[in-house]
Design a protein around this nucleic acid. Structure first.
Lengths: 144, 144
DNA sequence: CTTTTATTGCAACTCATTCGCAACTGCAGG
DNA sequence: CCTGCAGTTGCGAATGAGTTGCAATAAAAG
């Protein structure tokens, strides 16, 4: 099916990017990359560990954390620390976006707003700053 | 001096608000409220503990945390968990605002943007949600 | 295949924050 | 002013996410 093909492709693309950065591709890292590519939700480290172990039960939690750090510094994944919960991860394939967090289901919805982005830069400039990174999260509930 | 008077007033206002909520005003809580009222920066729990102990060295860290929880649920203080750092606190006297965090000095600058606020609500609505709370933080560096 | 050196699993550790519990203390009522 | 007791406290132990030291292992270069 198409999704699986895409994920395979995405995992390969990430592996390629890492190889060219001189990152050694171990069995464990491949498993983690595969899981990340297949995950449309935003899993946390424990969930990724659980999923990665299905493919290779030798993967330890420590390695999941270490791998996520490497992938983050290489720009392959993004880490999001939402309010009062362990950090969650997603592949960094899509361009920048912000998040709506459904307070009831904990589901995460992505959105972008060039307008808000522009306003942020302008506010920073007014205060003599330039934006290095930002965090915009809307904690929401479904409207009745 | 004026500032001290204001702080005294602010601490009293908070005490009053708490009393009317049926919160017992202990020596330790008064010390913590006083410190919070005097703090223009955004101290974390350990810093508040250090400052509160100057007035009353019996204040324990556990009590600082417990008091901050009470004050937060009573709407008297606000907790902010910025990236990769312990939570920081401020009195909830001023109306809602967002934050610029100076990555070099860790200083916090407050700002508001009704325009961004409006856009957030609109985005949430477009996705079938209503905003319960949000978090907007700009991690910045001074412009050269 | 061997070597070199990054990576791994494990268990022990850190750090912010919370909790159990016995001792203590505001404060409502005498 | 004095009492009683439910709400609070200090202490130390516990928790939970995330990190780290170390000896064993395994990519990848030759």
């Amino acid at each position: 099916m198409a999704e699986k093909d895409d994920c395979g492709t995405e995992a390969e693309a990430m592996e390629e990017a890492l190889r060219s950065e001189g990152v050694r591709l171990t069995r464990q890292r491949k498993a983690i990359l595969q899981v990340l590519a297949e995950s449309a939700d935003h899993p946390d480290a424990h969930e990724l560990h659980r999923r990665a172990q299905e493919a290779d039960d030798s993967v330890s939690l420590a390695t999941v954390y270490r791998t996520l750090s490497v992938l983050e510094t290489k720009g392959v994944v993004q880490r999001h620390a939402f309010e009062g919960a362990p950090a969650r991860f997603e592949t960094a394939d899509a361009p920048h976006h912000d998040h709506i967090i459904d307070l009831d289901s904990r589901e995460v919805i992505e959105f972008t707003s060039p307008e808000i982005e522009r306003l942020q830069k302008e506010i920073a400039r007014r205060h003599g700053y330039e934006v290095v990174s930002h965090r915009l999260e809307l904690y929401c509930r479904r409207r009745r």
